[in-house]
Design a protein around this nucleic acid. Structure first.
Lengths: 336, 336
DNA sequence: TTGAAAGCGCTAACAA
DNA sequence: TTGTTAGCGCTTTCAA
């Protein structure tokens, strides 16, 4: 069973291949009569013809494929985002090439090279650093790019969450519980989310401590939290994201501290399962799937019209209060 | 800045495009002299040439792209598997088109149509049902397919975990804690994993109850668990996977039951964060990332030689004991 | 070892 | 409205 081509369809419908192509693709130039169109469509359906995107792609320089890059597939924040991206893209006739840098910055350019070789029509990048040469080079090449969650210095349409608002709410929540010694245990400095969150935290808690973990992972969070507990006597921690918060739980455990009795903890993301952590994590919720959907919407619009002047999107956040935050404990009896 | 083609490289190196192509692609027929090769390679590097996979693909009928289909991106079991797949594929020069059916069976054929149009060289399917027309049609078309985690009636190379062994261990563990009334709260019947796990459970606990949830999700697990608690007095539950176990936690909560004091719970998967659930989940660990790596290895081998007779892979499991299992509680005082 | 020519499947531009 | 022609970028014959 040789592969079906447009020629087979054309022959079956008794028309020229170009006519068949136009009939199957109403947006192409050249109106085709209703009867011819119907004959072609029926022949295609009967034969089970599926267009060869490779052939089309070579001709049109369009692949109906979007390259999607996330920094860490193991961070539960990203799967819902990818779900939103995938659904919205497929709805618009696109498929997604998906890859993760696994938090290794130097992976980015290699992955993007693989994407470029496959003629992606556009790129959704969730792994951007503030100073990101790969993003810059995509933009310099005139390729459609949308950033999501993490911004870069390149000026492209983007979709982010209004972290400042949620963080202000989180700090108010902690202060309302009597906490005065609050730390922000956030991620690496070269990311826009880190900057935004740190700035929002400093505005809300001018006297707060800020500590940076190496990456937005539980392991790095645990390490940084252990250091923080060694060097200060905070009663509450705002983690840079929920995975860092998980690392804080681990650090509390090995220190013999109880959350929330000894330390209150707030995360950011409201990732899946945050509700089922031990204890349930109070966290600034970000609409992960919506971020992905909006990013897909923007890249589709940008691919359709690369010159379009698209507004970036900022989605709202909200504080979700669970068991990891509680009223501050009274001053301890001096232990020495 | 027009796109760089093999012609540009050839011109820069002073050779014919075909020669340049051969020089850059040592596996093509026709040896090229070392000096010519070097000249071409240098010219390509200097210009920053990246092969156009679309053009190549049209000629060779190879896209260096693998279609990967999972049933539920929101199940934390799959991201590590995808990570294994993505890494191993990229290592072999392939990229992955990734999509999720979101547990909607009828999505499968539509997604695969999108993959086929893009001329995937092969398919890794993690969403197969026992009787899966989409998988059958891929196989009938002679396309390379590897199944992972879930098997189908189609006979193709596959990668699965040795669930029977882990489940036997889990049931031994529960019996060792004094549990005699044990239920298996598993997923939908049309999946091979459900069948395998149920069979293993029945072998290990002939008197056990078996209940099916509609899907392998927390919501379905909660619903089924509530029904189970209504109709029986089990002291321990082996959940069909960790997400169903999460649903059990929720059902326990709304019943006012405490885990493990009132009911012990064992999951299957050891998904990320299982350790941090409330309480930490005792579970049959499956090497998720290895599953993905092996699947990638098989599909690459199969693409290279579609006639290859590859052995399927079975990876070992092991029980990880955490806080969700405990010695069975003594008989209660009769409450009425 | 290298060059010349042809064609993968499709659709844009032009012609009828 | 439909047909004709050409060519996207690459690699594979075949010929030198």
């Amino acid at each position: 069973m040789g592969k079906l081509t447009i020629r087979d369809v054309a022959r079956a419908a008794g028309v020229h291949p170009a006519t068949a192509s136009r009939a199957l693709n109403p947006r192409l130039p050249g109106r085709i009569s209703a009867e011819t169109t119907q004959r072609v469509v029926e022949a295609a359906a009967e034969l089970g013809y599926v267009v060869d995107v490779v052939g089309r792609s070579l001709r049109t320089r369009r692949s109906a494929t979007i390259g999607v890059l996330v920094p860490d597939l193991l961070n539960p924040f990203y799967p819902p985002l990818l779900r939103g991206v995938g659904r919205a893209l497929r709805h618009a006739g696109f498929e997604a090439l998906i890859a993760s840098t696994d938090n290794e910055l130097d992976q980015e350019s290699a992955i993007i090279a693989g994407f470029k070789a496959r003629q992606c029509d556009g790129y959704i990048i969730a792994s951007a650093t503030l100073d990101d040469p790969t993003v810059r080079s995509l933009v310099a090449d005139g390729l459609p790019v949308v950033l999501v969650n993490r911004l870069s210095d390149a000026i492209v349409p983007s979709v982010v969450s209004d972290d400042a608002q949620g963080i202000a709410e989180a700090v108010r929540h902690l202060r309302g519980l009597g906490h005065r010694k609050i730390a922000h245990l956030t991620g690496p400095a070269q990311l826009s989310v880190t900057e935004t969150r740190e700035k929002a935290f400093r505005a809300a808690a001018p006297k707060g401590i800020v500590v940076h973990a190496q990456t937005y992972t539980a392991a790095a969070g645990e390490q940084a939290c252990t250091g923080l507990l060694d060097s200060s006597d905070v009663t509450a921690i705002l983690a840079g994201n929920d995975m860092i918060a998980v690392g804080c739980y681990a650090a509390f455990d090995s220190r013999g501290l109880s959350c929330p009795a000894d330390v209150s903890l707030v995360g950011i993301n409201n990732m899946p399962l945050a509700e089922w952590l031990r204890p349930g994590l109070t966290t600034v919720a970000i609409p992960q799937e919506n971020l992905g959907e909006e990013a897909a919407r923007l890249i589709v619009a940008l691919v359709a019209d690369p010159a379009a002047d698209l507004d970036s999107v900022v989605l709202p956040t909200r504080l979700v209060v669970r068991g990891s935050t509680a009223r501050v404990r009274r001053a301890k009896h001096p232990s020495a």
